[in-house]
Design a protein around this nucleic acid. Structure first.
Ligand SMILES: [Mn+2]
Ligand SMILES: [Mn+2]
Ligand SMILES: [Zn+2]
Ligand SMILES: [Zn+2]
Lengths: 144, 144
DNA sequence: TCTTTTATTATTACCGGGTATCATTTTTAG
DNA sequence: CTAAAAATGATACCCGGTAATAATAAAAGA
């Protein structure tokens, strides 16, 4: 069995690992994030029909307050929750088809260290969103 | 008189520079962003009582679609709109006092170029949010 | 200019994502 | 085992954002 850093964070901070919380954290990790709260509720209904909407929202808020999850506004509609493993997250968003491409590597070590010194800011994590045009959409709309 | 890149963007894309749009773009630039739609409405009421809420939302959406503005979710409550001059924006957010510290310089040139090649992604801009603890809050909560 | 068409606006009503409340259940502490 | 604390689920509610429409202003055409 593989460990779940979301559950681990709850445990480390003295929160109870209840059945609903386990189910929510497992599902989040399984899907790799980028789900809305109600999408999570819907998927949970299949195996855990007893889990209510309120509990899902509360758990997402709790995980967010621990810095391992974050709500991002995707413009219109519900917020999406992304995983902040190691405190950071990076992805590309296509301005045309709105596809999201996850980036696992972090290229910001040097930059964040410099900012930390310059602003005397204790850095816990970061979120980098790069906006542009994906490969497929470049092909469809020739670059003049 | 100083130029307003928000208004310029509207002009460049063939949109009319109406009185409401001028007022909204000027106010956004004057405040440096980080306002919610309804905060804008409230501030506008003073000098332009005729401008309605719907027009503000529409103008913000229009500017967002042009890539010069972006809504960010601050966790609970209304979205805040940030300026994307040059297509990018960077700031620090304190996890304790929720203060936002703007960063004018961009330290991501190399990183974004590498990602552009690696993912064959045409980059239009980016948003970097760094989460951590600000200088003042570090002083209040000694680091053990 | 005057007319026609298009773009923008203000008002209103409405939707839905998220929350406040609270009774019930589950977990922990003693 | 008992009392206190934490977590859950159902319901009703709020408010940020939108859809729809009629009025107004701006642009295009004759
Ligand atoms: Mn992502
Ligand atoms: Mn900012
Ligand atoms: Zn695309
Ligand atoms: Zn602070």
């Amino acid at each position: 069995m593989k460990s779940n850093f979301l559950l681990q964070s709850l445990k480390d901070n003295g929160h109870t690992l209840t059945r609903p919380r386990r189910a929510i954290c497992d599902l989040l990790l399984e899907c790799g994030g980028h789900l809305s709260a109600d999408q999570l509720v819907e998927k949970l209904q299949i195996e855990y029909p007893e889990i209510g909407r309120m509990t899902v929202y509360r758990t997402l808020d709790l995980l967010s307050s621990l810095g391992v999850l974050r709500a991002v506004y995707q413009g219109g509609g519900a917020a999406h929750y992304i995983l902040l493993e190691g405190g950071h997250h990076h992805h590309l968003v296509c301005a045309i088809c709105h596809r999201v491409i996850e980036i696992d590597q972090c290229l910001l070590q040097d930059a964040t260290e410099q900012i930390s010194r310059q602003y005397r800011f204790q850095i816990l994590g970061h979120l980098l969103e790069i906006l542009g045009v994906c490969e497929q959409c470049q092909a469809k709309t020739p670059l003049n």
